[in-house]
Design a protein around this nucleic acid. Structure first.
Lengths: 336, 336
DNA sequence: CTGAAAGCGCTTACAG
DNA sequence: CTGAAAGCGCTTACAG
């Protein structure tokens, strides 16, 4: 907690300088049609001359409004979430809001802490990319606070909350089918450890194999953290398996980047010696070595849509449940 | 602007429930020693039972304090800045603050806009990674607002502002010397277009060449945006040059990743056919394909230090100018 | 058209 | 030890 600005000029100073009451100043500053042009001009001139800056804290306390929106992100080290955040922020700032950002790093106790803080600040709404292990009761709880909410990326069980995410099952299904159509029969699944997103993506993988009457080999499902290290480790393990594995679906792009590195260590190259497909289409995917084939769900746009859902909900709390599902789009570059 | 929470319970409700005055409630909630244990317990119990949540807006308006800190980032798509942001946020949240985050995307007019907004919100301090083209007068202006400031990464001309960044010249100097010691004589400099950071890094490059009595060849300085695309494009161009170029310093890691991709396209591999060194040491650098040799300035720690400087400044506005310069550390992995 | 008054939810001297 | 009062900087009915 810090002492705030030294000698702020207030609405009273402006009123004195313009020879009107503070009510008049207030009305002028919100462009009320009640005040005639010449008075308004005088007030504006005084405000500008004195360097008046509105105190949002005071105005919003009185008006019972808020222009702050809380955004809670689980993993900013993953460019997928960074791109989402940028999309959210862009839309929110354009709509006149300011974003209160917190990073949980997949830690639910930190998440609880920041959520409480943001509630205390009086956020007008909340966009939450939940940490692993977030209880399914959280949306209901936040609803009881009276705070409009949109959950992103990972669903939080059944419930009546707004959601923005992607059709994970379909995306991986199509990616796997592409590999199968190219003749691959031993296809690994790399990375991911827990959570609904993993389940959904795995379902897509299984469904595609089933289409080809291929029995699921559990040894080909390599669990690991969804980061580069995880991709590296699992690819190294996968490469050792016999009979030979010739392709892999990666839990996400970052895992795929790690897998590419592992292939490099082995003197192999994705797209030539092994087929690799990612998920997300983060910006880096177009320029990785080699460029990554992936399931495009357009993270930036996903963030913008989440912001739009929240804005709509704030505008009209009575709205029916809103869901935005990014349509996955298989993007074949050079890694498969 | 949204209507705020429906039926918040206030300090008055708690006072009524505990049969004390609101002053007493206020004192209890800030752990004042003035209130005896049994009264305090009664008040706390009532607060908990009613689900009381403090309204920071009101308390801080009255107290003239703020627990919000603004952080303005120029390019979140670059993992370097994402890592910095995470470091800042971690430290600030641990210190009891909440972060107001804005992304300028290198757009100075957007930067002006968000800065104004954050001033209106009454931020207790500001950490700014300035967009290209930010006027050198900005720190002074912000000082006049009465807002504690720390500038990061890019200096903003001379002035009495706190700063956290890295010794760019020395970092690149050492990287270039490493390449020279390994026998390289035609060394490119890839990416970067403008700004002090580029100047400083270029100075390091030039100084190292001078140590070896090598004349600077301006053709080897390839200007491009400091992103993957820039790295890709400039590497492609560099590879065509004759006499052959055998190594390059990259403006930053992201440029180096792009350059690696370009080498891949050409059937070459960094570390085997061409030597590449980056700058920053973002987390991805350890797992790129191949792992990137780079100048480590530890972005996360840099962010934490920036937060510490700001906290110290808020605590004690009279402090002399504070500067944190990350000591660059050449990290040789496989790309050079 | 403009001012005086009340009040948003708190904290902070000040009495007693 | 605890309560009554004033006030942070605004907005919003309500008079006139």
């Amino acid at each position: 907690m810090a002492e705030s600005m030294s000698n702020r000029v207030t609405i009273l100073d402006v009123a004195a300088a313009a020879n009107v009451s503070k009510s008049t100043v207030s009305l002028v500053l919100k462009d009320s049609p009640l005040i005639p042009g010449d008075t308004a001009a005088r007030v504006r001139e005084a405000a500008a001359r004195l360097g008046y800056v509105v105190n949002r804290r005071a105005s919003q306390l009185r008006a019972g409004s808020s222009n702050m929106i809380a955004v809670v992100i689980n993993d900013l080290m993953n460019p997928f979430f960074a791109e989402i955040l940028v999309g959210i922020e862009r839309r929110l700032v354009d709509a006149g809001y300011v974003v209160l950002m917190a990073h949980t790093n997949e830690d639910t106790s930190r998440q609880e802490k920041v959520l409480r803080t943001m509630r205390e600040q009086g956020a007008a709404g909340l966009i939450l990319c939940p940490a692993y292990g977030t209880p399914g009761t959280l949306p209901q709880e936040i609803h009881e606070w009276g705070t409009p909410l949109v959950v992103m990326v990972r669903t939080l069980g059944p419930g009546d909350y707004d959601f923005a995410g992607a059709d994970n099952e379909r995306g991986v299904y199509e990616a796997t089918k592409h590999l199968l159509a190219a003749g691959h029969r031993r296809i690994g699944f790399l990375g991911g450890q827990t959570g609904v997103v993993l389940e959904q993506r795995l379902n897509g993988y299984k469904a595609a194999l089933a289409d080809y009457q291929i029995k699921l080999d559990p040894d080909l499902l390599l669990s690991a953290k969804p980061n580069r290290q995880g991709g590296n480790d699992t690819m190294l393990a996968l490469a050792k398996m016999r009979p030979k594995v010739t392709a892999a679906i990666c839990y996400n792009d970052v895992v795929a980047f790690g897998a590419m590195g592992a292939l490099g260590e082995l003197g192999m190259r994705a797209g030539r010696d092994f087929a690799l497909i990612g998920f997300d289409n983060v910006q880096d995917a177009a320029h990785s070595n080699p460029p990554l084939s992936t399931v495009n769900i357009d993270p930036g746009t996903l963030g913008e849509h989440a912001a739009d859902l929240l804005l709509a909900r704030i505008e009209n709390p009575g709205l029916a449940r809103q869901v935005y599902m990014a349509k996955p789009d298989l993007l074949i570059r050079q890694s498969a």
